[in-house]
Structure formats: C-alpha cells, structure tokens
Simulated assay, not measured.
Amino acid sequence: MRDPLREPPLARHLVYRTSRIDEASELSSSVYCPIQLRVRERQARVDAQLNAASLGVVTVGYARYEAAVHLTTDELVSSYHVNIPLTGRTRSTCGGQEVISSPTRAAVFSPGKHVAVDWERDCAQLAVKLERRALEQHLERLLGRPVRHPIRFDLGMDLTTGLAASWLAAVRWLVSEFERSDGIVAQPLVAAHLENVLLTGLLLAQRHDHSDSLAAPQAAVRPGTVKRAVDIIEARADEPLTVAELASAVGRSVRSLEAGFQRYVGMSPMSYLRQVRLARVHHDLLAADLAAGVTVTEVATRWGFTHLGRFAAAYQERYGEPPSQTLRSGSDASSKVRCE
C-alpha cells in the first residue's frame, strides 16, 4: 500500500503546493467550495498540497496539510462532499452532528449546512466532490419522482463494510486511472459508467433521508415500456448510456425499469446492454484487418469493456472461442477473399 506522504495520489494533477495558508485557501476554494483555513498552532510550518482531477460531475482530490489546521465553510450550496482520511484524523461538525474521521470512517457533507473541520498535523485525505444538481437528478431517476430538497446524508460513513467499502474501492480505482497517462477514463463509455457507479453507489452506501424509499419494492413496468428501452439500447449501444438515462427516456424509475427487464427479458438493462455490446465487438472483430494493427483491446475498449479479463470470459462463454481467435478468423477470411 502506498504511503500518501511519500508518494501522493494524483501527482500528475497538481493544483498547488505552498507554504502560504491564504494561497491554499484561495486555490482550494476554486476547486471545491469557498473555504477559510487557519493554522491551529503558532509558528507551525505550513506545507499544503492539493492534487485534483474531475470526471464529469465528480471531482476527486488529494489534500494534505503538514500543520494542524482549522477549515470552515459558508453554507454549502452547489455540491456534496465526502472526505476520506488516508493518514491521521479529522474532527468534523455539520448541521449539529459531529464525527471523528479516520481511514475507516469518512465524513459526508450535505448542502444547506455550515461545515467545520479540524485537521491533525500531517493529515492527508481523499476529498470527493459531487455536483448537487447531478446527484439529486440521479436520485430522482432512481425514485421516479422529484426531489425538492437537498439530500440529508448522515455525517459519518463506515468504510469497512458493505456498500461503503465497495464505493471506496471505486473511488480508489478512479484515482489509479487518473494517475495513468493512458487511463481508460478518457473513453466516454467508461467515464459515463464510472460516474454512474459513483453517484448510485453513494446513494445506496450512505444513509440519508430517502434511503427507505430507495429500499422499498416497486412494481415492474409493462412490456411495451421494456420494448422501447430495448430499442434505445440497440440504437445507442455506442453511447455512454446509463440505466438512469434509459429510465428517464422511457418515463419510468430506474427500479421499475429494472424489475420490468428482469420479468420480460430475464436480465437487467445493463446486462442486456453488455450483451448488445458483446455482439458489436464480435461483429467488429470478424470485420477487422489484423494486418492493419487492429487489436482485441482496442475493439473491446471502444465498446466500453474496461476489465479485459472479465470481457474475455464473457466473450468465450457466448461465442465458444476467445476474442483473439475471432480476430484471426475474420482476418484470414478477409485475406482469402482478397486473394480470390
């Protein structure tokens, strides 16, 4: 496991490294939200650093202060925030709640509240920002009804169990991809999928005032609605389509659409989309010219498959041969046609 004080995450995305607390306040505010910073110890050495990168409506950053600092915000307006200590601890207050955060417990901040955070010396955190309107619209699609007020998350988030641990793993994976010069988050299909995972994951992993509604059963949609969704998938399989966008396009909630697909198609909408994309990969491999340098990785990534091991297993199961064999077979057939 990396030591975040020696090899900071997101090093390719430096926003600042400074010894001036006023500069750290100003530049952090430009990335996240207006904040005020002050050093808690007299004559303490200030060595502040922020690295940050964005994926659509999600910003993830690495923040560190060598000195113990006190951070405050005005009332949050346009974003939700999750602070995840990598080293050290923080004490956060928000809306009358207080939590001590550590590498196993994050703090989640909601709009409409003031925030105050005391950082220990040499504390480093992953700081995730999610745009307010995007998260609330995403919740609306999941519920199938309007959300008229900010989502009220519980302040403390246990990162050691269940969905929260999975959500943290997704955040760490995003960080690792941002650190690569050739990371696949540059692919639109991948970026949209991961953004959807982070939004849905937070709404399911962390308790809030709509959690009970999300957990409640919902009736399945009718076959005609499922057929419209299937037609959209077939026509737009090359786009960064998410289940939330699909549900919105047919005028239903995500959960009712998923129930309809399970009843009438026998799989989820995203599983059906993966099957369509597998078929498109198969077609493209058969039509590809191996001599032109076409690779399985290139074709699979173009159709949104990011984990090549799982892709290869799914392809083998469906077509009875590895994708590399399909590519060779298609190229051999093309060569034979040209020779004749």
Rank of each mutant, 00 (worst) to 15 (best):
residue 58 V to Y: 00
residue 225 T to H: 06
residue 248 S to Y: 07
residue 202 L to A: 00
residue 32 Y to R: 10
residue 138 H to S: 06
residue 38 R to C: 10
residue 13 H to R: 05
residue 222 R to K: 11
residue 164 A to E: 05
residue 269 P to W: 01
residue 188 P to N: 02
residue 309 G to F: 01
residue 315 Y to W: 09
residue 214 L to D: 10
residue 315 Y to V: 01
residue 155 L to A: 06
residue 143 L to E: 14
residue 145 R to D: 07
residue 285 L to Q: 02
residue 208 H to T: 07
residue 124 A to M: 08
residue 259 A to N: 04
residue 282 H to M: 01
residue 316 Q to S: 13
residue 260 G to K: 08
residue 120 E to A: 10
residue 188 P to V: 06
residue 39 V to H: 03
residue 189 L to G: 02
residue 59 T to V: 14
residue 333 A to H: 03
residue 111 P to K: 05
residue 72 T to G: 08
residue 189 L to K: 14
residue 205 A to L: 07
residue 50 L to Y: 03
residue 91 R to C: 03
residue 123 C to Q: 13
residue 169 A to E: 09
residue 23 E to A: 10
residue 92 S to T: 15
residue 99 V to P: 00
residue 312 A to H: 10
residue 40 R to S: 05
residue 174 L to K: 03
residue 152 R to H: 11
residue 327 L to A: 02
residue 294 V to I: 13
residue 198 L to Q: 04
residue 124 A to R: 06
residue 322 P to V: 04
residue 64 R to T: 00
residue 304 G to Q: 08
residue 289 D to T: 09
residue 51 N to R: 09
residue 264 Y to N: 01
residue 180 R to Y: 02
residue 255 R to Q: 05
residue 76 L to Q: 11
residue 122 D to G: 00
residue 93 T to G: 00
residue 273 L to N: 08
residue 44 A to R: 04
residue 85 P to W: 08
residue 142 L to F: 04
residue 266 G to R: 02
residue 105 R to E: 13
residue 321 E to T: 04
residue 147 V to K: 13
residue 77 V to E: 15
residue 166 S to N: 09
residue 236 R to S: 03
residue 283 H to R: 14
residue 47 D to I: 12
residue 156 G to A: 15
residue 199 L to I: 01
residue 262 Q to T: 00
residue 31 V to P: 12
residue 29 S to F: 09
residue 67 A to W: 01
residue 312 A to D: 15
residue 99 V to K: 03
residue 240 P to I: 01
residue 42 R to G: 14
residue 288 A to K: 03
residue 307 H to R: 12
residue 240 P to T: 12
residue 123 C to M: 11
residue 175 V to I: 15
residue 313 A to D: 11
